[in-house]
Write a protein that binds this DNA or RNA. Sequence first.
DNA 1: CATGAATGAGACTTCATTCAT
DNA 2: CATGAATGAAGTCTCATTCAT
Lengths: 209, 209, 209, 209
Amino acid sequence: MGSTGRVGRPPAGDSAETRRRILHAARIRFARDGYRATTNRLIADDVGITPGAIYHYVESKAELYAAVYCDTVDHVYTDFERVVAGERHLLAQFSAVLERACDLQMNDPSITGFIVAVAQETQRHPDLLALLSPQRGRHSRFFTGLVEAAAERGELQADVDQRALADLLGAVLSGLARMSAAAGDPKRYTAAVEVLERFFDGSLVSVRS
Amino acid sequence: MGSTGRVGRPPAGDSAETRRRILHAARIRFARDGYRATTNRLIADDVGITPGAIYHYVESKAELYAAVYCDTVDHVYTDFERVVAGERHLLAQFSAVLERACDLQMNDPSITGFIVAVAQETQRHPDLLALLSPQRGRHSRFFTGLVEAAAERGELQADVDQRALADLLGAVLSGLARMSAAAGDPKRYTAAVEVLERFFDGSLVSVRS
Amino acid sequence: MGSTGRVGRPPAGDSAETRRRILHAARIRFARDGYRATTNRLIADDVGITPGAIYHYVESKAELYAAVYCDTVDHVYTDFERVVAGERHLLAQFSAVLERACDLQMNDPSITGFIVAVAQETQRHPDLLALLSPQRGRHSRFFTGLVEAAAERGELQADVDQRALADLLGAVLSGLARMSAAAGDPKRYTAAVEVLERFFDGSLVSVRS
Amino acid sequence: MGSTGRVGRPPAGDSAETRRRILHAARIRFARDGYRATTNRLIADDVGITPGAIYHYVESKAELYAAVYCDTVDHVYTDFERVVAGERHLLAQFSAVLERACDLQMNDPSITGFIVAVAQETQRHPDLLALLSPQRGRHSRFFTGLVEAAAERGELQADVDQRALADLLGAVLSGLARMSAAAGDPKRYTAAVEVLERFFDGSLVSVRS
DNA sequence: CATGAATGAGACTTCATTCAT
DNA sequence: CATGAATGAAGTCTCATTCAT
């Protein structure tokens, strides 16, 4: 909106700050509404600028998505890699990741919301794929790497399908994140993770028949 | 079939048949590309009609989505309710549902693909919510019902958060379905479910320390 | 515009006729204002439709240009080829072409106006080139062909640069067409051609000193 | 140079020099890409400044065009007037102009390229007309003046349409300039002029039957 | 003198939807 | 029942221009 019909440079616009606000607003919208339904106007309105101004910071909507992806993947997987480093076993690592994701979720649900939607969006908008590929590796190899390491440590039965296990872990994490996004309540993620932990340690079911 | 005892119309170019084909094509598109990116033209092209003709069968794109939802929810939960009726314990019921979903997935990935996307789509396009609500109950109360029944049977510790458990089960199922959709390969769903089953019966990890 | 805010199919729109009117309006605009300055809205206003309606007839503005090109090149060079067939010598052929171009010019100045602008437009908008290339040959080889034939008939000194001669003939024709377009008066083309003819037959200058 | 006896300013980063570079870059762009497709940013990039800086030197893009026009017309017609002064007959004067234009063309094709596009641009962007009119006279009356003088010298048959002859000469010159611009090769201008000269002196055609 | 953030108008294009036929 | 011409709103993006710094 810009408050007045004024034109020209605003009194004291901090450029880096504006960029951050654009990326932040974009992540929230992309996470909640998806790539397609997120219009430049919605993002611009959230930031308090006009749609065209976005093009001072990114070259296109697709590049905006890629910029958000870059930021967010870096943030999330740096975190995840740190917490798994503190654990020795696959299940403990997975638990630690789930808990770290809880924190992220409570702190800013758009972070996990964005990440878990990426796979769908790239499938729906193949032009995004090319822009994201430089960073895709880190994302897609996280659970694969965890499982491989566990196998090397001899934690798994020899005949386990490693890709399927990595798929499972990823699916559980993203299923939970999406559930809480759909519920609009990050606490439901936390609660569900707690139930899952109880399942792991056997305190869920009353009697095992 | 069954709505009216229609008689005498030629079998080819049948109106009810055309409606079915529209709903089917729409489900595939909605599941793969999402509500927004699915245009009437794409659906019409798949069916072999023109976009305007869709309006003979539904009043709007949103109502088309609702019609698909109605059909699909009915199909899926009738199936699911049937298989859970054959099991006595929550975990067995969940396993049965996962296996039934495997079959659906192999048979027509658009069925589960559509269902697991509904929550996101209604959040992204709130106008869909009103049209879907008549049928939302069945969908959202499925796992809740399973968990409640298990609690009544005394299968759960008394302090278990039932909604969280239902959320967890739903999240795992939809996480798996989405993973396989993203992978574009229903067999990865099957494989991941097999790993999950091995987790249940303890044959996944080599040694429990 | 559309006279009323009505929507839906107009009472009796002849589709082929509308297409012709779009191409015609587009040719006039392209010839006078150039590709860039010619907006879909201007064309649509000329035709009495909305800008989006153009996309029922062509896939893009560039394809509209190509369609106009196709039509116009065909029209012009069919004419030109017919008149040169009636003449034996290069100069007579060129005169015949100039005269035929007079008629075209008087009849519809946008025809020659469009043709003589094509080279510039394709240079300025390289994406047009690809769309036009299927038809470019006819255009670019017309004078080349005339000159080659004249050389084969032995009309030219052996050392004449044939490409330069073809360039000259093309330049004179298009220079004249453009002059009259700039003047906004087709009669100035006719008058200039008459002067040129008098130059050919020696009745221009009063005495050669 | 010469406007004011500027003294003491450092030679580098000189304001007048920057203005010259802007005008030069603008002429090249205007000549090659046209007024519309030439953006302030392209010009600024060529010069090594930012688009906003252009507004320190001219008040608008249209005035920039006018400034280029002013410079270029002055340059070209001062040249042309000098060479025609050395000739006695219309045809010789025209030849001299064609040859001088050859030199210009080889030296800096943007000069003639700009000039021959002016008529079109003013037609396409009527707002330019007002800004150019102060200088239009020199341009439009050059060949008119030549022809009038020739008529006064008795070189022409009495019934010759003088405006048409001036139109013809202008059309030939600008047709040739444009042809070479389209070909992207100034040598084709030179070659075509040579052929035209051979036409004048009768050494083009092998036999006049 | 110059930058660069920002605007606002407007371009091309897509699409759900309508309706005469 | 179906077509297909047409609309109008909206979306992405471009660009001349302004102005605080």
